[in-house]
């Protein structure tokens, strides 16, 4: 049982880290600032919640189950998703309004 949970932890932690890495590679290869803000959501929407879940499973294995920790996990996941999407909205709007250079391939642009 412990072995199974450890394997699950490994899958969640390494998988989450791989999502963060994919987001970094996408950031390296995309061509303008707005696309880089855009690809960040695969790190915050998948990567960090998976890592937090893996940490929680290991916490249960080592210290036992309690409800407070489960609530903390749910707050962390909801926080990562909601806060990062609200923050990305604000950042995307600010980047567009500050006249960040756009990829010339951006077509159609209905906000021009």
């Amino acid at each position: 049982m412990t072995l199974l949970l450890t394997i699950l932890t490994g899958v969640l932690c390494i998988g989450g880290a791989i999502f963060v890495l994919l987001s970094a590679i996408a950031m390296l290869r995309s061509r303008d600032g707005l696309s880089r803000i855009n690809v960040l959501s695969s790190a915050t929407g998948m990567g960090l919640p998976w890592i937090a879940t893996g940490v929680y499973i290991q916490h249960v294995v080592v210290h036992g189950f309690d409800v407070i920790t489960l609530i903390k996990l749910l707050v962390a996941i909801a926080g990562f998703i909601i806060m990062s999407s609200v923050a990305s909205n604000a950042l995307g709007r600010a980047a567009y309004r500050s006249g960040a250079p756009l990829d010339p391939a951006t077509d159609p642009n209905e906000l021009a």
Partner: peptide, 14 residues
């Protein structure tokens, strides 16, 4: 707006 932003590949600008 938040659901669009959290989906990788789309983001709300305004």
């Amino acid at each position: 707006a938040s659901s669009i932003t959290i989906t990788p590949g789309t983001i709300t600008l305004g």
